[in-house]
Design a protein around this nucleic acid. Structure first.
Lengths: 230, 230
DNA sequence: TGAAACAGTGTCCGGTGGACACAATTAGGG
DNA sequence: CCCTAATTGTGTCCACCGGACACTGTTTCA
């Protein structure tokens, strides 16, 4: 998975037959497969068949599958929302919402962006966008990066949870409830909490809840920093 | 990946040859491989070879690879720290530290616990432990679960970051710096921030930073709830 | 009009998870 | 006491995966 591939301008050659495909076509076909059947269904075979070619032809456009997945992720994550000058809290809110929307639209993007990997332009664009929001907060450089990391981590966690809910089998709550029916005595608080949640209803506020807590915590820090400066 | 497998008491049969292996032996062998070479190196072939058997023999003990990974994850995550009555903040701090320690000790446990999956006893034990800490906070059931989710998400994000740093190739900062040297003009704030961080030094506070922010945010909410009750 | 560069195909390889039939082993019941 | 039934471990087979490589055809520049 070379870094140059995501960033380098691939100068098209002049000699030889015209390529029948485009990186964009290939990436879109792969994304279509992933949207419909998940990232596991994306194989060189499958993607090339979707385009009417053999799998080895794809290697004329891509060094390997890793680069394909990286391109898919870049395209899925898209471009960040326009900067919202002034209110850093509202800007980060919008940022987190946008990121979550992208992850919800392409749930496989979560799997495609785990672990050490070369970062693409879009991904750095999101980073830059969040840094713009934090520009006038008085935080240090590493604090800003850490704050963004916390937010991004929350967004990813929520997106994972949402994907788990969408999955027909292995329903989280159903599975836990079934287990608690048998071994509830080993987890009394959990059993009580699940029962309480079932009565309360409206438990889809997880994203906003965490977002509020994190932004509140940041607000506390930023306020104290500003007071110290004065 | 059946739920019963992680929870059910597998009654041993009486007739037939004595089994040469144990689920525990198999799991430990797989964990040893994963610790040394990552989760990708864990295959039925590899694990069985490590034990001196053929791969198909493992299927006498496990329905499939999914169950093996689930057992590995359960064993890697271990048991939660003892409850710390009184101070919910300190208890959650300890909880998060313990979880992070487990993830740092077995980095592959991150990959092994993504996506919808049956939750094992240990995993529910950690949940129960965190709920114990939140028992007297006046939060609602879903709020407690959401708070735990935010914390767990932060721990996982930090562990992922640490694993990415450990990885010799695809060094995050090095790769970003290299890209910024070329395209820094497209990401001015990011370039400036990276430069500032390099001067500041000591950027390993990401975990504590996020933990502080989240706990601060929770503190704000809990205080307001208590004031409202009074 | 070559010759060089490039596109797409076919074949092969080692690896994966897993189904299935089989021989070997063991314990319980007649 | 022995035989039958249950269970273990093995060997073979399959489909699929990512990828290396040689090859044929096509296109364009010198």
């Amino acid at each position: 998975m070379s870094m140059e591939f995501l960033w380098g301008a691939r100068a098209q050659p002049t000699r030889g037959p015209k390529p029948s495909l485009t990186l964009l076509q290939i990436t879109d076909a792969a994304i279509a497969v992933a949207d419909a059947e998940g990232l596991a269904a994306v194989s060189m075979q499958r993607v090339s068949a979707e385009l009417g070619f053999t799998k080895m032809s794809l290697y004329r456009y891509l060094p390997g599958k890793g680069e394909l997945v990286a391109l898919m992720a870049e395209r899925a994550i898209g471009t960040p929302p326009p900067p919202n000058p002034g209110d850093w809290g509202a800007a980060l809110r919008e940022w987190a919402h946008g990121l979550l929307t992208a992850y919800l639209r392409h749930p496989w993007a979560l799997e495609a962006t785990v672990g050490p990997r070369p970062l693409g332009p879009h991904e750095l664009g999101w980073l830059e966008c969040a840094l713009t929001a934090l520009a006038d907060t008085g935080l240090s450089g590493s604090e800003r990066l850490d704050a963004i990391a916390v937010l991004a981590g929350h967004v990813r966690m929520i997106a994972q949870q949402a994907a788990a809910m969408r999955d027909p089998d292995a329903q989280f709550s159903a599975g836990v409830v079934a287990v608690l029916a048998e071994h509830g005595d080993r987890f009394p608080l959990l059993a009580a909490t699940m029962a309480a949640v079932a009565v309360e209803g409206g438990q889809d506020q997880a994203f906003e809840f965490g977002l509020d807590r994190i932004l509140d915590g940041l607000q506390t820090l930023i306020a104290s920093r500003r007071k110290a400066l004065r």
